[in-house]
């Protein structure tokens, strides 16, 4: 039985696609058959982050409209075994994602034996975002330590609790996880950034991991390599931790505090 994960946030630009690409890659690296689906119809970007943009022939909407078979649209990742990508369409017709269509694609993927189906949600709370979260078993809510992002995360949490399939069918609720990205412990210490504790107190969602602000995230998206493959980068390591924690490993949280520098380097460094 495969598990459906939605990566969502409400607000745009907080790192949903970066997170979806990293987590899908991480799950596949650990030996799980994983497919990551781009739900951002009209603004496809997951393919760029995963570096397979030139290999897109058919897409999600082609399958829903029966214009192609699932096997024709699925792109097998070249770097990571067990990882497949289902790109979004560049059509402007946002209503192309129908309930029945999405459900049947998800069912087909389950039948093909995928362990994890990662749904990369578009920003906002419109149709595409609602479709991405509707079938989810678990939700990764990505937030930045910034007021508008935290507020939007709370809205999305409310929607997960009221408008997902699990909410409508009255089963177990969608399991929620918080991923805090672009965290800068130095600015938290200076009192000009919300702390992890502040955000956890407000949102009341279990923390899966903190991803520190890091230059390597932009560098890796420049080259189309998911950040989790950069083992030297703190952000890459943070995503490795997140995947391990999600799979049940009990790892202490990292990257939440400023590393202590020697006094002289602190003054003149």
């Amino acid at each position: 039985m495969s598990k459906i994960i939605v990566v969502t946030s409400g607000k745009g630009g907080v790192g949903k696609t970066t997170t979806a690409a990293a987590i899908a890659t991480g799950l596949a690296q650990k030996g799980h058959m994983t497919v990551v689906i781009d739900f951002d119809v009209g603004l496809r970007n997951l393919d760029l982050i995963l570096g397979c943009e030139r290999r897109v022939v058919y897409d999600f909407v082609n399958i829903i409209k029966d214009e192609a078979r699932l096997s024709q649209a699925l792109i097998k990742d070249k770097r990571t075994d067990n990882l497949y990508i289902l790109p979004a369409s560049q059509t402007r017709d946002k209503d192309a994602l129908t309930h029945e269509g999405v459900e049947s694609v998800l069912n087909d993927l389950q039948e093909q034996g995928f362990d994890y189906i990662v749904c990369d949600s578009p920003a906002g709370i419109e149709h595409g975002a609602l479709m991405a979260l509707y079938f989810a078993d678990e939700a990764f809510v990505v937030s930045n330590p910034e007021v508008s992002s935290v507020r939007d995360s709370d809205r999305i949490l409310g929607i997960l609790q009221s408008r997902s399939r699990r909410a409508e069918n009255g089963g177990d609720p969608v399991k929620e996880h918080l991923i805090l990205t672009r965290y800068d412990p130095q600015r938290v210490d200076n009192g000009d950034m919300l702390s992890v504790d502040d955000i956890l107190e407000i949102l009341a969602v279990p923390l899966l991991g903190v991803v520190p602000e890091s230059k390597s995230v932009l560098q890796s998206s420049n080259s189309g390599v998911p950040i989790i493959l950069d083992e030297l980068s703190p952000a890459g390591q943070a995503y490795q931790d997140i995947v391990s924690r999600f799979l049940g490993e009990d790892l202490p949280h990292r990257f939440m505090h400023v590393e202590k520098k020697p006094l002289l380097r602190r003054l003149f460094g």
Partner: peptide, 13 residues
């Protein structure tokens, strides 16, 4: 430094 983070937290709550 003025602590703007605590202002942010209060407003959010």
């Amino acid at each position: 430094n003025i602590n703007t983070a605590s202002t942010a937290k209060d407003r959010l709550q």
